[in-house]
């Protein structure tokens, strides 16, 4: 059995260049695709598709976003609500905050409704009716952007 002489062992240095290249590529990718906008999206809501749904030209000022899930629950301000009465009381509280602490009129506030494609249309109408009762006037019905024609496919 032969033994290597210990005295002549070399320091092995790994070549770090490919790893650093790759890491910088990853950083560059994430920097480009990162989005700091506070877009309110919720995985529980699958939006209906529409080829005409376009993002607004200018961002809304202090919009209120109400999500409607397929099982008829509402998500407002991160809380899942099961009853319309609870949603109404939450919105009523919001109107008081808007009127007391901002100079905005309720008619200028946009209510964004993100309803699931399988949610009941009547629920969306009820939300609109509640908002109208609370003096909101502007609504944005949110849909998923689609490139194909959705009207002819139904």
């Amino acid at each position: 059995m032969r033994f290597r002489p210990k005295g002549v062992s070399k320091i092995v240095e790994g070549d770090l260049t490919p790893m650093i290249d790759m890491t910088f590529q990853l950083i560059a990718f994430f920097m480009l695709v990162i989005n700091f906008s506070d877009a309110e999206q919720d995985q529980r809501v699958k939006l209906p598709a529409s080829e005409l749904a376009r993002p607004p030209a200018a961002p809304y000022e202090q919009p209120l976003t109400i999500h409607v899930t397929h099982d008829g629950h509402f998500i407002y301000a991160g809380n899942e609500l099961t009853e319309l009465a609870r949603l109404r009381s939450e919105l009523l509280r919001e109107t008081q905050i808007i009127l007391r602490h901002t100079s905005k009129q309720l008619g200028d506030v946009t209510v964004i409704i993100r309803a699931d494609e399988n949610a009941k249309t009547g629920l969306v109408q009820e939300i609109i009716a509640i908002c109208q009762e609370l003096k909101f006037e502007k609504f944005a019905l949110r849909g998923k952007q689609e490139k194909v024609n959705t009207v002819g496919s139904s």
Binding site: S50, P55, L141, R142, K144
Partner: peptide, 16 residues
């Protein structure tokens, strides 16, 4: 990193 799906709005004005 969060994936943001492209979304759009239909703006309607519905006063009471």
């Amino acid at each position: 990193f969060k994936i943001i799906l492209p979304e759009g709005d239909f703006n309607i004005r519905m006063p009471s």
